[in-house]
Design a protein around this nucleic acid. Structure first.
Length: 429
DNA sequence: TCTGGGGTCCTAGGACCC
DNA sequence: TCTGGGGTCCTAGGACCC
């Protein structure tokens, strides 16, 4: 495969969260459906019917009330347990098709395809086979984009989703240059992976409006205006692969756990409960990736949308004397930090913690001055195993409270169909 | 009444030192 | 009256992604 040019596929689930809900509730098919973020705040997934109504990603649910009533939009709280499980099923299927899979997000993966062309008449046939099997085995619709670079594969996927003539699979490698330029001339520059709202506006100001126009701009010109990252993007658009597959995810450099509250919080006592709980979630993730951390950050803030309220937003970093993954020590550090920044008299909306300065746990164990207590490691393992078996937060430190009045609301949650015995879908004869 | 959460990378600017 | 310059480190904030 030395001289075989790279070929990437991007497999992306259509309207992923909405599609997951439809698998288990067929009545949602063809209806306008949105899935809402935590606290039933914003639309984070929209069915095609909702997109056609002009609802943008991130629109607050309360703002689309008139439209929702008029068109019968169905709103569901997000059911992350279900989506994560469905995602795993899709990714498992993709591994049957290619030995090289990079899981890029919960609903999309890059596949390395070069070398597989001998097994299939065309890459398009391979893409259709993926669509068919994922559809048959999970019920989820996916589209496939195929191209010599990841950036082009992203665009190919977009074409596969929006142009009916591709029937869900778009292979740019078989297009003639003129055809490719024609398609790219119809796409706005903001569709390019790595070009967001701000950069799109600046490109427009330079007279670069379409993807084809960006592709036709010399990379060094782009570098002068936008830096090395955007220059790489232009090279990728020109078919020169600069971004390779990352099949093994590198360990995270920071771990965040934060939530908006379901109800306003004023007292330090309730903030302590929330911070304690978030830290226990973060610590679990830390141990999962086999890391220890040597600094934690705590932050709290009021609701920035309530402009008439007095605002307060701050955070503090608490260094640890030695790196650890012990929930009890991490929670203690976070609560110490909270006491430093808490001010009475504010209506708090959100709190969070960050784990910083992460390092592999194995390095710490080699250190002379920080012996690991084997009983701590055992305790944490038992904690994690119990919570994995019986659901997050089954066992927790007392400092995170019992009532948790501040916990986020999920008023439209659907059952966790695939991961809880008592929530399995029922079939009525 | 009601506006998400979790990441990465890059850069500008301040603090500090010599 | 006249008030350096360069390097490093750290942090905050911007921009992007899903």
């Amino acid at each position: 495969m030395e001289n075989t040019p790279r070929v990437f596929a991007l497999v992306d689930c259509n309207n992923f969260y909405v599609s997951c809900e439809r698998v288990f509730n067929p009545k949602l098919a063809d209806k306008p459906v949105v899935v809402l973020s935590n606290n039933d705040g914003c639309a984070v997934a929209r069915s095609n019917e909702v997109k056609a109504l002009g609802v943008k990603m991130g629109t607050p649910w309360f703002q689309m009330q008139p439209l929702a009533r008029q068109h019968g939009i169905i709103a569901l709280s997000s059911n992350y347990t279900l989506y994560a499980d469905m995602s795993q099923r899709v990714m498992t299927i993709l591994r049957d098709f290619s030995p090289e899979v990079e899981v890029y997000s919960i609903d999309e993966s890059f596949l390395g395809l070069q070398g597989l062309s001998r097994l299939w008449p065309t890459y398009t046939d391979l893409g259709q086979a993926i669509r068919h099997r994922v559809g048959q085995w999970t019920g989820l619709p996916v589209c496939v984009g195929i191209a010599p670079t990841k950036t082009l594969a992203k665009l190919a996927n977009h074409l596969a989703k929006t142009r009916p003539e591709f029937a869900g699979v778009c292979d740019l490698t078989v297009l003639k240059e003129g055809q490719l330029a024609g398609y790219l001339a119809c796409l706005e520059v903001g569709e390019v992976w790595g070009v967001g709202r701000r950069i799109a506006a600046r490109l427009q100001a330079l007279g670069i409006g379409s993807v084809q126009a960006l592709r036709a701009t010399p990379p060094h010109v782009i570098r002068e205006h936008f830096g090395v990252v955007m220059e790489r993007t232009v090279r990728e658009l020109r078919g020169i692969s600069c971004l390779d597959l990352e099949e093994v995810a590198p360990p995270k450099q920071q771990i965040i756990a934060s939530r908006s509250f379901g109800a306003p919080v004023i007292s330090q006592e309730e903030l302590r409960e929330a911070v304690s709980r978030y830290m226990q979630t973060a610590a679990e993730k830390l141990r999962q990736q086999g890391s220890v951390c040597s600094a934690v950050q705590v932050f709290i803030h009021t609701n920035p949308f309530k402009t008439h309220d007095r605002q307060y937003s701050t955070g503090v970093v608490v260094p640890l004397t030695q790196a650890t993954d012990d929930s009890r020590r991490l929670v203690a550090a976070a609560l110490w930090g909270l006491a430093r920044i808490y001010r009475p008299g504010y209506c708090y909306k959100k709190a969070g913690v960050m784990l910083l300065d992460l390092a592999p746990a194995s390095v710490r164990q080699a250190s002379l001055f920080s012996q690991v207590n084997p009983r701590t490691a055992h305790l944490m393992r038992v904690l994690d195993e119990l919570n994995a078996a019986h659901g997050r937060n089954t066992i927790h430190l007392a400092s995170s409270g019992i009532q948790q009045r501040w916990a986020a609301r999920f008023d439209h949650r659907t059952p966790r169909y695939t991961t809880r015995w008592d929530e399995l879908p029922r079939v009525h004869a």
